[in-house]
C-alpha cells in the first residue's frame, strides 16, 4: 500500500515492518540521497549523518564483507577510508564478516549478522549504526529487522543505488565520497567543542 506520508524513522516499528519501497519511498537519483524517506542532496545527507554520529551515545560501524576482506587494492583503499571515518567519529566497529546464520547463536559482543542484527544492537545498546560494505540484499534484510525491533538509527553508506529502508542512505559512494564525509564529520565534531 503506497503511503506518501510514510517516513523511515527509528523504531521499534513492530514485527514485520513494511519495506519502505512498498510504502512509496523511492531510491534517490545520482547525486542525491535519502533522509528518513525523503530525497535530499548528497551534501545535506552527509551533514545529517555527521550530526547523528557526533551526537550519538554509542555509534557503531558495521563493515561488511565487501571491505572486511582484502579482495583487491581498491578494496583496501576503501577499507582505510572507512577506518578513517571510524576514527574521526570515535565510533566502535562490529564486523559482519559473512552472512551465515550460524545457529544456535552468534556472539553479539563481537559480530553482527544480517539474520538477527537486533541481537547485536540490543546487547551493545547501540543508538546509531552505519552499514558499509554490506551486500545490498543482506543490508536490506538487516535494516528492516533493526527498524522493526529496535530504536537504533540506521545509516547506509552504499556503493550502489542506496537503501530505502535506512534512515539515511548515500548512494554511489566512492573513496572520494568517504573522504568528503570524513571532512564533514570532523568539522561537525569541531563545532560541538
Amino acid at each position: 500500500m503506497l503511503n506518501r506520508y510514510y517516513r523511515v524513522q527509528a523504531g521499534p516499528e513492530g514485527y514485520l515492518p513494511p519495506a519502505a519501497a512498498s510504502m512509496g519511498v523511492m531510491l534517490p537519483e545520482k547525486g542525491e540521497a535519502l533522509v528518513e524517506g525523503i530525497i535530499v542532496s548528497e551534501e545535506e545527507a552527509m551533514q545529517k549523518i555527521a550530526e547523528k554520529i557526533v551526537n550519538a551515545k554509542n555509534p557503531v560501524f558495521f563493515p561488511g564483507p565487501n571491505i572486511l576482506w582484502a579482495w583487491n587494492d581498491s578494496v583496501l583503499e576503501k577499507a582505510y577510508a572507512v577506518n578513517d571515518l571510524v576514527q574521526s567519529s570515535g565510533a566502535r566497529v562490529i564486523p559482519m564478516p559473512d552472512y551465515r546464520p550460524k545457529y544456535p547463536m552468534i556472539n553479539p559482543e563481537v559480530e553482527i549478522n544480517p539474520n538477527h542484527p537486533n541481537l547485536t544492537i540490543w546487547h551493545n545498546h547501540i543508538d546509531v549504526c552505519v552499514f558499509v560494505g554490506v551486500h545490498c540484499h543482506y543490508a536490506n534484510i538487516a535494516l528492516k529487522i533493526i527498524r522493526g525491533g529496535t530504536d537504533c538509527y540506521t545509516i547506509a553508506i552504499c556503493g550502489e543505488a542506496g537503501h530505502e529502508d535506512a534512515m539515511i542512505s548515500l548512494r554511489d559512494v566512492s573513496i572520494d565520497t568517504l573522504r568528503r564525509l570524513n571532512d564533514v564529520i570532523k568539522s561537525t565534531g569541531e563545532g560541538l567543542k
Binding site: 563493515p63 572486511l68 576482506w69 582484502a70 578494496v75 583496501l76 577506518n83 562490529i94 564486523p95 564478516p97
Partner: peptide, 18 residues
C-alpha cells in the same frame, strides 16, 4: 591470497575468522 582480512580491520575480526 584473496582470503585475507583487510589489515585495518584485523583487530575487530572475530577469532573464528582469523
Amino acid at each position: 591470497g584473496l582470503v585475507k582480512i583487510s589489515p585495518c580491520f584485523e583487530d575487530v575480526m572475530p577469532q573464528e575468522y582469523k
